Simulated scan of single mutants.
Amino acid sequence: MRCHWDEEDTWFNFEVDAEGCVTRQAELEGPELIPVAAASLAEWQRARDAGRLGDYDSSFGITAELPVSEWEGHEPEQLTFEEFEDVWGPARQRIASRPG
């Protein structure tokens, strides 16, 4: 699913599991849709367990913590798996290739 936050001109793109928890999240800012985050919950958990959470957060960001069912004031647009992948792949590639 995806939703737009007008105040920051940011598109939030989410992949959610059966319980409504965000498993992957890509954020694109501005009219150019510049990727600013492309986080995976599984990767975040592995980084936390390995003591590298700060590095992961500063590189890829974090996923939303609340399940979708607890969100207020959002009317997300549903995406297909392919539509999410079309955003996730390029966003992840661009963020991963940024100089550290």
Rank of each mutant, 00 (worst) to 15 (best):
C3P: 12
H4C: 05
H4L: 04
W5A: 14
W5Y: 15
D6H: 13
W11E: 07
W11G: 06
N13S: 08
F14L: 11
E15G: 05
V16M: 02
V16Y: 04
D17N: 07
D17M: 04
A18L: 04
V22M: 00
V22H: 02
T23A: 00
A26W: 00
E29Q: 05
P31E: 08
I34F: 11
V36Y: 01
A37G: 14
A38M: 03
A39C: 10
S40L: 01
L41K: 05
L41C: 07
L41Y: 06
A42F: 03
A42G: 02
W44Q: 11
A47H: 07
A50P: 11
G51A: 05
G51K: 01
G51T: 12
D55V: 05
D55L: 12
Y56S: 03
S59Y: 03
S59R: 15
G61A: 06
G61S: 02
G61F: 00
I62P: 11
I62W: 03
V68D: 12
S69N: 06
E70W: 12
E70P: 15
W71H: 05
G73E: 03
G73W: 05
G73R: 07
E75G: 09
E77P: 15
E77N: 11
Q78R: 14
L79S: 10
L79D: 02
T80M: 09
E82K: 15
E83T: 08
W88P: 06
P90S: 02
R92W: 09
Q93M: 13
A96I: 08
A96H: 08
G100Q: 15
G100H: 14
